[in-house]
Simulated assay, not measured.
Amino acid sequence: MACLAALVVALAACASAGPKADALNQSQYAWSGAVRWGDFEGAWGLLDPEYREQHPITELEMERYNQIQVSYYRDNGGVRDLDAGTAARDVEMGVINRHTQAERTARYKETWRWDEAAKRWWLTSGMPDFWKGQ
């Protein structure tokens, strides 16, 4: 009986996350995977369409992204207000220059917006600036 009660509580916790939370987790997973494995064109496609229109990326900027390799991508915690349709999380990344093989740490704050019409999350914070402070 105790096992059954524990199972019911666990299922209720999973169910309470809801489709919006699941969609956020999937979007964040897709984003971190694209950045971690160097698919910066794929990462670009996960940015808010309004952001992409207002901040088009140049061929030169994309080439700069191709000169680095992300060695790790760590979630350092986030803030979610799913009812308001916003979320943010701080991440830390290891960044390796492909030419010099020098590695350094970069920090980035993701901000997300829920698009009710599309039923999906968009990243509104833009591409990570791996060159800030250099």
Rank of each mutant, 00 (worst) to 15 (best):
G45Q: 13
R107C: 04
D129C: 00
S32C: 08
K119Y: 01
R107F: 14
P19F: 11
L123N: 02
C14R: 02
D39N: 03
A10Q: 07
E103F: 01
T124D: 00
V70H: 06
A118K: 11
W114S: 04
E53I: 03
D75T: 03
Q101V: 08
T124E: 00
R89P: 05
P56G: 01
H55C: 04
A88D: 10
M62P: 05
I96F: 07
K119R: 14
C3K: 12
A21E: 15
M127L: 15
Y73K: 05
E92H: 04
W31M: 09
S71K: 13
E110R: 01
N25G: 10
G38K: 07
M93A: 03
A23S: 15
H55P: 06
D81F: 05
S32L: 10
G38Q: 08
V9Q: 08
V91T: 13
T124N: 00
A12V: 08
F40H: 05
Q69D: 13
R74P: 00
N25T: 15
D48Q: 02
L47Y: 00
N97Q: 09
N66W: 08
D75L: 07
C3Y: 09
A106H: 05
N25M: 10
Q28A: 10
Y72G: 03
G38C: 10
K109P: 08
G78I: 04
T100R: 05
K119D: 01
S125Q: 02
T105W: 03
V70G: 03
K109S: 15
D81H: 12
S125A: 13
G45R: 12
D90F: 05
E103L: 07
S32Q: 13
Y108H: 15
L24N: 05
R80K: 15
G77M: 02
E116W: 01
E92R: 11
